[in-house]
Structures are given as C-alpha cells and as structure tokens.
Amino acid sequence: MNRLNRDQMAARVARDIPEGAYVNLGIGLPTKVANYLPAEREIFMQSENGLLGMGPAPAPGEEDWELINAGKQAVTLLTGGCFFHHADSFAMMRGGHLDICVLGAFQVSVHGDLANWHTGEPDAIPAVGGAMDLAIGAKQTFVMMELLTKQGESKLVENCTYPLTGLGCVSRVYTDLAVFDLGPSGARVVEMVEGLDIEELRRITGLDLAFTKAAEPV
C-alpha cells in the first residue's frame, strides 16, 4: 500500500487549513505543515510564546534570538504580525479564538482523548508546556502521527493507556495510512491510502471503525 511519508502527511493536513484561519502548529512533526501552505493563502500562524503572523526561519546568520518560536528556534515575523504576552497568548487558546491546532501524539482514543505529554514511565522527567492548553483550547484540534508504533501497535486506541493531555478534544487524526474523524460515537474513516481496505485497517488497529463508502483515497 502507498503509506504516506511525513512530508506527504504534512501536505495532507495543509489542504484542510483554510484562508483566514488562526493556527498553532505543535512542536515536532506538525511544524512541517507550514512548508505546504500555499503562499497565496493568508493564514495566521500563532506561536504560544507571544507572536501572531509567524514567518519562516531566517537565513543563516540573520537569527535574532529574541524572535523565536515555541520550539525555541529562530523565526521571522510577517508584515502585519504582532507580539503579546503569555497571558494573552493562552487566552487566544482557552478563549476559543484560535481556529486550529495541530499536535503530535503518543495515543489518541476513538472518542478524541489525547495523550501526548508524558510516557508515564517512573524515571521520566515530566514536562507539559502548552500541550494541555492547546489541546482543549483551539476550536479544532488535529493530531498528526504515524498510525502504528515501531512495534506495530495502533496509536489510535479504544482508551488511552498513557497519561492524558485532554479529554474528548481531538476532532481529526491524520496518519500515514488513513484520516479519521473522532467524536462521542467513535472513529470514522474519512480517507485511506491506496491499496488499503477497511477490513485490513480494522485488523491492524483492532478497532470497530465506522466507514462510509464515500471514503476516498488520501
């Protein structure tokens, strides 16, 4: 089957981000989505450390270490962008002003519970950052992840076994094999890669996935 690589996944997420959206891309894999947003589409990128209208990385040598993103990498500000303090930044999330956030995950449950901050291992040093605020604050929370772990276990699960980041907060999951919509009634397959069928997807996830014939190839 035509498993998507990480750049193809990012391009797929980018297709669903409309003009005018206020968007926060989480650290790690979701950051790649920015590379696939068409230049003619005006989208407002938010970074929780206090900027709206974030632009791409500066040219080497042009870094300003007082102009960074949440991953502490040097970025630029687009014309029309602005700065604000942390309380305003998180009010943008919690207050329901941010349209979309895209996050990575360890696990997502079919009802939209998210686990992405802590493995729960006793010797792990916990760190949460803005993950919990983002997950429950944005109008829509998308997750972008490989569907299976390296051991072949599904990361889309009936119930998360890792410590939770937020309850019922994820509305859509983009993976290398399929796209899922989540909600109180469970997971529904929206798209699958070519060469994959619903029975195989049900087998590898172990989940009772809803499916309508309209589901298209990714």
Partner: peptide
C-alpha cells in the same frame, strides 16, 4: 509542574488580586 497557560493565568490572577481561577486546562489529567 504547571501547564503553561495555567502558569500564565495563575500569575496574572495574583497580579490582578483574584482569589483563584477556574480553568478548563488540565481537567481529567494527572
């Protein structure tokens, strides 16, 4: 360990003279 937005909101609450806040962030988590 405090979620980042709760950290900001709790600091702002102190500076604003509020006795406490009710925040949705962290509900249902460790």
């Amino acid at each position: 360990l405090v979620p980042q937005g709760n950290l900001a909101a709790r600091i702002q609450a102190a500076g604003s003279g509020l006795g406490a806040i009710f925040t949705p962030t962290g509900y249902g988590t460790l």
